[in-house]
Amino acid sequence: MNQILDKIFAHATKFIALSVLLIVAWIFTTLFEQSLFSLQASGFDFITETLWAPNLEKFGALPAIYGSVVSTFLAMVLAVPIAIGVAIFLSELAPAKLKSPVGVSIELLAAIPSVIYGMWGLFYFVPIVRDIFGGVGISMLSAGIVLSIMILPFMAAVTRDAMNTTPDILKESAYALGGTKWDVIKDVIIPYAKAGIIGSFILALGRAIGETMAVTFVMGNVHKISTDLTQPATSIPVALANEFTEADTQIYYSSLFELSLLLLVISFTIISIAKFYFLRRKRVGA
């Protein structure tokens, strides 16, 4: 009896664990199948065409791709230096009394859902962008800034964790040679924790590019490529969030699925690079 139950338990857990792989494979094949119609209709033009006009049955994804790239790039440019600054503050600078409360609140803020950041951005940040930079406020710029604020806590927390892996004795030996804090940080801590820091930045990039709610509120979903950052724009997830329930033709649906597939492939690639190239998993107990 015990033997049978033992086998059942072993096989059941294995099957469920395998289902994770099955689901991922299923997601890819489903999205691919659903995109087929659009893939056959527009082929490679899908990602190079700039006109997205559902009423004309024209679906060019370039504006959305452009918007994803630019908003994520903006977010990274703004968030990376501040995240490094916050991480330095938390790991090397903050007095013991501040270290833990500031660190914990940053971690908790990383847990706040992105929809909240989006809502705050719409009501409080968009007006400021409008007043300072002109335009309607709903714009690529607002999206980049809100996105940067959203990824900041995650980036700062993981950068701090990576910096904290530097052994004290290594830091002490640099101080013992007469280094200043900054000398020690730039010459010892950052080189030591480099892989972890870069890996977490790329991971943050992978998350940012797929982030939907933080940007949907403030971007406007306008399929137009503009170098003027104060203009409304769109990104792949923003287009999906806005248009999925409105799609009324097969080609429209299929195009949206192709967008989803594109997004999934892009973020899978970026996250894999972060994970396999920079962040080799630390084994528990190893």
Partner: peptide, 28 residues
């Protein structure tokens, strides 16, 4: 090997865009 692959894929899934999961469930 299998366990390692499942771990890696799960790690990636944790950071994958959730809107895509929505699209997938819409289809199925």
């Amino acid at each position: 090997r299998l366990a390692e692959i499942i771990r890696d894929v799960s790690d990636i899934m944790m950071s994958a865009p959730s809107i895509v999961i929505g699209a997938f469930v819409y289809a199925i």
